[in-house]
Amino acid sequence: MVMAFAHWVHVDYLYFASYTILQFIVLATAWNILGGYCGYVNFGSAAFFAMGAYSSVFMHKFYPLPIPLLIVIGAAVSGIAGLGMGYLTLRLRGSFFAIATLALAVVLQTLVVNWDFVGGSRGAYIIRPETLEFAGYEINYIEYLFFLMLSLAVLALITARTIERAQLGFGFATIRDDEMAAEASGVPTLRVKLIATTISGAFMGMAGAPFPYYIGYLQPSSAFGLEYAVNSIAMPMIGGTTSWIGPLVGAILLGSAQQYATVTISSAVNLLIVGLMLVGFVIIAPNGIVGLVQERLRAWRRP
């Protein structure tokens, strides 16, 4: 009996921890589609994530829907927000977009704090069932959430990898390299950038949509948590920004390290380490871990 309980706790914890890491894979990949491929920095990942989470809270109170549909709604809300932010700022100098996303998080948090329907500053409880009936089987709810997030992570990675090899990937890279030369080569830069902000925002919203069900009680401070903004930048930067593998490596490495570290050391120290690693990597290894490995391989092949 005790053994069975220990086993149950263990497996459940594993699902909980893996969910968080998968969520970071989605966020880091989404950030990288705009940041790594096009070279535009989004500081407001937390805001896009929270928009997904709060659209689920809103729907939960207004008209409950199954989570896959909530993911679609979250994607739409955050994707449109990304499009709007891009449209307003991307016609101007590059840095305006970054600044606007930074301010977006503060303002959306202000709106949510003042919006009683979704719980305001007190937060909102989402009561989730213990189990779920699926094709005649009864499955554990946390397993269900885990598999949803796993599918999202796979979807995000496939999207990123497909873009890299398609016409769009070339378009993104020209924007990162030289926008004026891109226009002269016939790349519609504004449209390509807006596609990037929309896809990137939409995936962040998707990552956020199941979050209220995962956490059970959603507060503005947890949905807009700084760790989302920081990790979704740090993970691709540390992993490597030029290919889909980079964010994946970064998210698995930093994500599992943090899961381990929050148990052993305080979360502040934990975040401090992420911040220091971010600063260190951008200075010393601009192409991240993937870049370091590639350099090694090249040196090894050409002695």
């Binding site: 016409q167 070339f170 378009g171 890279a173 020209t174 990162r176 390299d177 030289d178 004026m180 030369a181 891109a182 080569s185 016939g186 790349v187 519609p188 030029t242």
Partner: peptide
């Protein structure tokens, strides 16, 4: 103003694609 993250072949591919 070449696209410096791409090799020469890919530099020319951009106008062809777009």
């Amino acid at each position: 103003r070449p696209f410096h993250s791409m090799n020469l072949l890919d530099n020319l591919r951009v106008p062809l694609l777009y």
